[in-house]
C-alpha cells in the first residue's frame, strides 16, 4: 500500500510538470506547426529570474510570480525577434531557428552568468516532508502536485471559457479556418507564445525548486521529455499533451521502481522502446488526428 501511494505521488508530481511542459509545446505547434526546442531555455530563464528575486531579498511568492511572468514575456519577445521573420518559411527553417535560439540562449547564460550551476535557496518549510499513513511525502512534491493540478484546471477553464482559449483550440483543429473567421494570425501566434512561456515559467519554477539549482543547460532534458510526451499524446492535441505527460511519468517511475538493479542502466532505452511500441499502435499519438495523404 505504501509503495502504491509513493508510486502515485511520484507519478502525479512528475506527470504534472511534464504535462505543463508538453502543453507549452502543443500550444505553439497548434498555431505554427513548430516544435519549439527553445522552450527549455525559457524554463532556464525563469530559473535565473527566480534566483535573482530570491537573492535580492524579495518575498518567495513575489520571486515566483515575477519569474513566471518573465517566462511569458520572454516567449513573446522570442516570437517577435526570431520566429516572426521566418513565419512563412518551411517547417525545417522554423525548426532550425528554434535550435539556433536555444543554442544562443545557452551560450548567453554560460558567458553572461556562469557555466556553473547556481544553487537556488528555497524556503526551509519546503525542504521537509509530511507523513501520510506510513508514507513520507516531501513538501516539494505536494507543492508540485498542487500547482500542477491547479495550473491544468486553470488552463481547462481558459480553453473552455475564453475567446483566446477557443481560438487556440480551434487553431489546433484548423489554423486556416480560424484566420477566415476573423482571428488575426499575428495576435493569435503572439498570444500562443505568451501562454507557452507562462507554462514554461510554471514548469520551470517547479523544476528548479525540486532540483535546487539552475544551470545554463537545464532546459535540454525537460524539453526532450516534453517533446516525447507531446508525440505520445498526439502532436498538437492539448488533451493528448496532458495525457502523454502522465503516461510518460507512469512508465518512467514504474521502471525506476520495479526494474531489477542489473537492468536499471537500460531504463531510458526501455522507456523509449515502450514509447515506440505505443506509437506503432497509435501512429499519430493517442489523441492525434488521422492525417490522410493526397497523392
Amino acid at each position: 500500500m505504501d509503495a502504491l501511494i509513493s508510486y502515485l505521488v511520484n507519478v502525479i508530481s512528475l506527470g504534472g510538470t511534464y504535462a505543463l511542459l508538453a502543453l507549452g509545446l502543443a500550444v505553439i505547434f497548434s498555431v505554427l506547426g513548430l516544435i519549439n526546442f527553445a522552450h527549455g531555455e525559457l524554463m532556464t530563464l525563469t530559473g535565473y529570474v527566480l534566483l535573482a528575486g530570491i537573492l535580492t531579498g524579495q518575498p518567495f511568492w513575489l520571486a515566483v510570480f515575477v519569474a513566471v511572468i518573465a517566462g511569458g514575456i520572454s516567449a513573446a519577445l522570442m516570437e517577435f525577434a526570431a520566429f516572426r521573420p521566418v513565419r512563412n518559411a518551411s517547417g525545417a527553417t522554423l525548426l532550425m531557428t528554434s535550435f539556433a535560439v536555444s543554442m544562443l540562449l545557452q551560450v548567453l547564460f554560460q558567458n553572461g552568468i556562469s557555466p556553473r550551476g547556481q544553487a537556488v535557496p528555497v524556503p526551509t518549510w519546503l525542504t521537509t516532508s509530511l507523513s501520510i499513513g506510513n508514507s513520507q511525502i516531501s513538501k516539494v512534491q505536494i507543492m508540485s502536485i498542487t500547482v500542477g493540478v491547479l495550473a491544468l484546471l486553470a488552463l481547462k477553464f481558459f480553453f473552455d471559457r475564453s475567446y483566446w482559449g477557443w481560438a487556440i483550440r480551434a487553431a489546433a483543429d484548423d489554423f486556416e479556418i480560424v484566420g477566415l473567421m476573423g482571428v488575426k494570425a499575428s495576435r493569435l501566434i503572439s498570444f500562443a507564445f505568451l501562454l507557452s512561456g507562462l507554462l514554461a515559467g510554471v514548469a520551470g519554477v517547479l523544476w528548479v525548486i525540486q532540483r535546487g539549482s539552475v544551470d545554463p543547460l537545464m532546459g535540454f532534458k525537460p524539453v526532450l521529455a516534453a517533446f516525447i510526451v507531446a508525440v505520445i499524446g498526439g502532436l498538437g492535441s492539448l488533451t493528448g499533451a496532458v495525457a502523454g505527460g502522465f503516461i510518460l511519468s507512469a512508465i518512467e517511475i514504474a521502471l525506476q521502481t520495479w526494474l531489477p538493479p542489473n537492468v536499471m542502466p537500460y531504463r531510458d532505452a526501455i522507456t523509449y522502446t515502450i514509447v515506440v511500441i505505443i506509437l506503432s499502435i497509435f501512429p499519430n499519438g493517442i489523441f492525434g488526428k488521422r492525417t490522410q495523404e493526397k497523392v
Binding site: R116, G117, A119, T127, T128, S129, Q136, S138, K139, V140, Q210, R211, G212, S213, V214, D215, M218
Partner: peptide, 16 residues
C-alpha cells in the same frame, strides 16, 4: 555532481 547532486540531497534530506 551538479545539477544532480543538489536534487538528490534535497530529496534525501526532505524525506528525513
Amino acid at each position: 555532481y551538479e545539477p544532480d547532486f543538489p536534487t538528490f540531497i534535497k530529496a534525501l534530506r526532505g524525506a528525513g
